[in-house]
């Protein structure tokens, strides 16, 4: 994991906002976001008046039960779910579609099967009119960073799930996004691989300095990674509670046995337990 420094410097140098103004303005502002889907059985309220801000460089995790609208919120911030009700500003400008300063990593890697690892990562830069040479240079930097040098010319179907997801992360980073959205990126991995990936992500995060919104339904993962955890209610999704995670960094998975960590986890679990009971009673009385 070296050779990435050049990219990082580039990313910082090319950022239009100065550090001062960035401090004043949140990287992401979501206010009163509601999303209603038309289905054949009528309308489903997927997200109900969700509001939150994310500060520049902050790492926010969103947890909540399955179907509560986590992916929908993330997709909307990404510009994949338009139109929407409410306001979303990224770096101060409203979201109206996919944009170059927002990158996304999905639960499935969704690598282009016909492209080698290098070409997959170079795809974004190529789409932004970089020359093949430039794009490959960016890709090779990132490949070194994710430790897959040996697989630069391999096709995705020859990689393990964890390696594929690392490539997907690198591919999203190749456009040097100011905001990185991650939708349960490690959800499909086994526990061991996931732990390694979490440590990798923390390391990576220190270098790229992007703002990260990370969706998961794993409380441990959320507390380990985040500066702040947003806990969502069962559908229609609202934000129940924000929990600030003031654990020292750099962190690694060994943090999970410390008392400060455990008390944070208990706070979160209490909120989730109460919400679970409420949702259960509600569905019972209907």
């Amino acid at each position: 994991m070296s050779g990435s420094r050049s990219i990082v410097k580039l990313a910082l140098a090319s950022s239009p906002a100065s550090v001062d103004s960035a401090r004043k303005q949140p990287a992401i502002q979501v206010s009163n976001l509601s999303i209603v889907f038309d289905t054949h059985r009528g309308q489903t309220v997927a997200v109900d008046r969700v509001s939150f801000d994310v500060a520049p460089g902050e790492f926010v995790c969103v947890v909540g039960p399955s179907g509560c609208g986590k992916s929908t919120v993330l997709n909307t911030i990404a510009g994949l779910e338009v139109p929407y009700e409410g306001d979303i500003l990224v770096e101060g400008s409203p979201v109206g579609g996919p944009r170059p300063d927002v990158g996304m990593v999905f639960q499935q890697p969704h690598l282009f099967p016909w492209k080698s690892v290098r070409r997959n990562i170079a795809h974004g830069p190529r789409m932004h009119r970089k020359s093949r040479k430039e794009a490959n240079a960016i890709a090779d930097d990132l490949i070194a960073m994710i430790g897959l040098k040996r697989f630069a010319d391999a096709y995705p179907n020859t990689l393990s799930g964890g390696m594929q997801q690392r490539v997907a992360i690198a591919r999203a980073l190749a456009n040097q996004p100011r905001v990185l959205l991650m939708d349960e990126p490690f959800g499909a991995l086994d526990a061991q691989t996931r732990a390694v990936m979490q440590d990798n992500l923390l390391e990576l995060r220190d270098r790229i300095k992007a703002t990260i919104v990370f969706v998961t339904h794993d409380i441990d993962e959320a507390i380990l990674l985040a500066d702040r955890v947003l806990i969502m209610s069962a559908g229609p999704g609202r934000i129940l509670r924000e929990v600030a995670v003031k654990l020292p960094r750099p962190r690694s998975s060994t943090i999970m046995v410390e008392p400060s960590y455990l008390s944070l986890k208990k706070d979160c679990l209490d909120v989730i337990r109460a919400e679970g009971a409420r949702a259960f009673n509600q569905s019972d009385s209907n």
Binding site: A78, L80, P98, P100, V102, G103, M104, F106, Q108, H110, L111, F112, H123, G124, M127, H128, A168, R171, A172, A174, N175
Partner: peptide
Amino acid sequence: VDRGLIRAALMLGTPRRQ
């Protein structure tokens, strides 16, 4: 064609006409 690939491509800045 996997919708996921299309969403990924959109996020990477692939124009719809391409």
